[in-house]
Structures are given as C-alpha cells and as structure tokens.
Design a protein around this nucleic acid. Sequence first.
DNA 1: GTATTCTCCGACCGATCGGTCGGTCTAATT
DNA 2: AATTAGACCGACCGATCGGTCGGAGAATAC
Lengths: 225, 225
Amino acid sequence: MKVAAAVELGSRDKLLDAAETLFSRRGYAGVGMSEVAEAVGLGKSSLFHHFRSKSELYAAVVGRILDLFERRTTEALAAGGSPALRFDRWLDALMDTLAEHHSSSRLLLRSLFEDDELTGASEEEQRVDQTIKRLFGSVATLLKEGMESGYFRLASIPHFLQSLVGLTVYHFASGEFGEELFGRSVFSPTLVKQRKQEVKALLHHGLIAHAPVRRSPTIKGGAPS
Amino acid sequence: MKVAAAVELGSRDKLLDAAETLFSRRGYAGVGMSEVAEAVGLGKSSLFHHFRSKSELYAAVVGRILDLFERRTTEALAAGGSPALRFDRWLDALMDTLAEHHSSSRLLLRSLFEDDELTGASEEEQRVDQTIKRLFGSVATLLKEGMESGYFRLASIPHFLQSLVGLTVYHFASGEFGEELFGRSVFSPTLVKQRKQEVKALLHHGLIAHAPVRRSPTIKGGAPS
DNA sequence: GTATTCTCCGACCGATCGGTCGGTCTAATT
DNA sequence: AATTAGACCGACCGATCGGTCGGAGAATAC
C-alpha cells in the first residue's frame, strides 16, 4: 500500500494538476485526453486507467478546487466573531485562495456560467452542484446575519452574492486581458494586495463620492494603453 | 442587387446569429461547423462559402457584438452632460444591451478571460482586440474625468474597470446558475431593473452600512435554496 | 513460487473534426 | 443566347476525438 514520500506526487495527482491547468485555460471541449496524458509523460491509455471518462476527469478537477474553496470558507466562517469580522476574514480567504491557485478562478467561473459543459447527470457532477450550493448557502447566511446585525446595508442577497463573485472571481480570471490592463500579472503580490483593498473600499464606500471628499487615498494607475 | 425586404435575413446573417448563440453557450472549441450550418438548414459546405474558416466565423461573431457595444457606448458618452450624467447613461446602456442581447455577456466574458480561444494572429482578430481597447479606453477616460470633477471617489482606474465588468457582464452571463439563484431568468425585465438598481446602489453606498441606516430599501430575496 | 493487483502501454475502433473539391441551380449581365 | 457570379450541396480528405482491449512489467500477498 501507499507509503509514498510527501514530495513525490502520484500519477493520479499529476494528471489532476495537468488537467486543471489545461481545462482552466481552454475549457472542457478545448482539451483532449491525449494532451492531458502527454503533459505528465503518460500514455492516453494510462489516463483512462485512472479516470473512466473525460467527464469524470473534469468533475474530479472541479470537485477538488471546489472542496478547497469550501474548506477555506468553512474555516473562515467557523472561527467566531461578529458578522463583520467573519465576512472580512472570508473575503480575505477567498481572494487569497483565488490568488494562490492560479487556475481556480477560471475553473470556478466556467462552472458558474457554462451550463452544459457537463451533462449534469453523473453522480460526481451532482456532487459538484451540491458543493456550489452549500458554499453559496453559507455565505448567504453570513450576509443575512450581517444585515440583521446592521453591519451590511439592506440589499438583495442574491444580487450581493453575484456582485461578490463578479468583483473577485472575474478579476483573477481575466488573465492576459487583466495583465494588459494593469501592466503586470493579476497574480503579482502587489496587485493582489491592491485588489483586496479596492474591493473592500468599494464595499465600504461605493465608488461615487459623497459631499466633500475627505479621504486622500493614493491614486494609482491611469487609463489603459 | 440586394433589394431584400427587411424582414428576411440573408443566409450570412442567419449563420452569424446561430453561431453567436452556439459559441456563447459552449465556446469556440465546443461548437462544430456542421452544427452551425445545420442550425440554419444549410450544408457545411455552404457555411464555408460564407466564412473561409472557423476562426474567421468566430471573429465575425465577436466583432459584431463588440461593434454593438462600442456603438452604444459612443452614443451614451457623446451626448453631453456632466461626467456623473454620462456615466449613469453609459451604465444604463451597457446593462440594457447585455440584457436585450442574451448571448452578448458570455461572448464578451469569454473574449476577456479566454486567452487563446483564437490564435490572435489574423487581421480580424486584431481588430477585435483593438475594439476592446478602444471601448475600455473611452470608459477609462470618463472615469478619469469623473474623478477630477470630484464625482467619483479617487480609486485605481483599472480596478474600477474590472469591478464594473464583474458587476455587470458576469451577472448576465451566469445563466442557469443565476436563474437558480434568483428563481427566474436573469433576463427577466424585473430582474434586469433590480440589477440596475443594485449596481447603482453599490456604486453609491457600497454594501456596508455606515452609522445609522437611513434608507429603508425594499429587501428582496433571501438565501438561495 | 505463484497468484493477484496495480500501473502502464501500443494498437486499434467508430465517430467527428475542420476543410476541400467538383459540380448544380438560379439570377443577373451582356 | 451565351456568359458570369453567387449560393448551395454531396462526397470526400487526413487528422484527431473519446474510448477499448489485451497484455507487459513490477510489486505485494499468500
């Protein structure tokens, strides 16, 4: 049985890693099974030894990163504190995870907005759907508590959720376009830190100034191109 | 010569329409040329009569909706007024266009976050890139003016742009997931109106309450599922 | 020692991929 | 009437698609 030193990944995990990168970049249909196998130096038949079908491989990839997000979310929410504190901790955890796991944003975005990448029938795919629901459900609960406690403005919770996804996941998924817009990778440490600040500032103050502008924030970046 | 009544679309336009729907749903790699042709009752060879290659077809589809967005943006910005007024008009135009043109959001999102859907070499694809740059450039200019005039809070313009895309384009691209979250299609008139209000409220006040909550907005929707 | 299990592979399958080719039919030009 | 040009199609091309099959090689179990 498995004794395996921690440093050396098994073939299965290497395949998952390679598939994750490829699927995140080109989507389900854009990646071939032989391509995934070759990426880790295996034959296509060996890939089919570890995963029975392409859809199973994809579901495994998505399931893995979804589990990661759920774990981080649970951690951030489980540790106590006011809704304000827990929300802030969750937002940090979310953006840290998106930032450190480069392919996660695109994979997540794809599974949110591509309806029929998978048929949605197989067991593992249903598990993916359920995980997403649970994830959004626990954040929704947090938002509700935050509103009841007066920390959040009263607003539509579904819209709130959509806004949070749009503000965070999309940004890290914007890849080359984002890189051109900012002049550096969206994953660069300074830019990640900036994004956190900008999102939090937006959530706190909006983007439209009220009355006299009191704060004198550092103004960064100009028009693109 | 073309006399063609306005009601009957030429084969080329019908192909573009069909391709737009299919590409928006399943992406470049996920759509076959024969599928596009069959969708309008033509043979594959006839499709290749109108478009020399698949990438040319895709570029034509994306170029067409991008031109629409540029036209609407130019209209909204050209009509005079304060930066505040012009921004508000542009935001309305953007979301109206996203709402009425169902496939546009996904197509736009894909061209923003899928780097290598196309090779990026052919002329038409470069034109797409340039249109995107021009579009974002003119909005960036507006934001800059708005900040100088004191209407907008001072913030990073690239981040501001990313936030706007995330708040608007993603929402309309969220398809089935959005439908499940809200209990109705994100394109339904009431939901479109709601989204406009929510986005504007977010831009004006953020999502975090300050001191005593003054406004008493209609609270809509609860936790999903 | 042998049986079992795991991992991997080469060869192959039918189907579909993007794309080509030769040709037909129709309508406008001359 | 003859020619041209555009729209369209069936048949076909080589390549690649997801997936199968039988077996090789090494390790573990008994």
